Simulated assay, not measured.
Amino acid sequence: MEITSTEAQNNFGRYLKLAWFEDIIITKNGKKTVVVRRYEEPGKDVSVVAEKAEIYFWDQEKITYEDFLMLSESSENRYEYIDGEVYLLASPTYDHQCIIMEISNVLYNYFKGKKCRPLTSPFDVTLSVSDNKNVVQPDMIVICDTENINEKGRYTGVPTLVLEVLSDSTQKKDLLKKLNLYLQAGISEYWIVNPWRKEVYLYCFAELDIREYRVYQSSDTIKSLYFEGLSVPLEQLFS
């Protein structure tokens, strides 16, 4: 992120927080002069940490939604923003993408010619809970309110179905934080794919509560509780 020396002087505290996630390059008279960078302890292998599917800065201060937008719009990295906390996302694994491809093929065929549309990440979804805005990039979503795509191609609605594939570093967030966020935001159905146990956990939400919860294993076939006739055999998913 590049800012002028005037911006740095007027909003130093703001950019100091953003330096947790991106180097802040300060320019003067059009020339790059100073870099503000997050300090790393000597001997820490940053390259190993950066290869993980997600990094969460546990000791960083929360930032505002406006600052998050500034960060994400000026960066080539992918971020999520939940309850004021920032998550850095990296490229998914081969197995992760194979699972997404299998599910996306089923969803594409099921929804072909219907109003609802399946979409895959990266695609920002902004969800409001108690007037607090959160920005996530689920692995897959199904949206039935396509009228909420604005003139910039941004989605401003609430998906009907959300799907996440767990990874070593995202499972706590997907199983806890996102579960609660999706429930509170008004999403109807949440699928969680566990690639190690070869299981799928399906939550059906209604009236801000879990109406039904199912676990699919082995040779089971996942059956949507919201979309009649939508099903995915687990053997196909994990083949």
Rank of each mutant, 00 (worst) to 15 (best):
S239W: 13
Y201K: 14
G43T: 12
D124Y: 07
Y56L: 08
E207V: 09
L119R: 14
L119S: 04
Y94M: 08
E207Y: 06
L176T: 13
E235N: 14
A53G: 15
R38V: 14
L166C: 02
Y226V: 14
R14P: 05
E164R: 02
T4Q: 07
T27S: 15
V200R: 07
S224R: 00
F227E: 02
S130W: 01
T126K: 01
E199V: 05
T6E: 10
E189N: 10
L230W: 09
L163F: 04
L88P: 09
M101Q: 10
G13F: 13
V49K: 01
S121A: 11
L89S: 05
K172R: 09
E207D: 15
E102Y: 10
C144T: 10
K178T: 13
E7N: 06
K44H: 13
L127H: 06
Y155F: 09
S188L: 15
N180S: 06
V36M: 11
Y79H: 03
N134P: 08
S121R: 08
V158T: 00
N105V: 04
S167V: 07
S231F: 05
M140H: 09
L208T: 11
P42N: 06
H96L: 03
E164Q: 06
H96E: 13
L161D: 03
F68G: 00
E85A: 14
S121F: 03
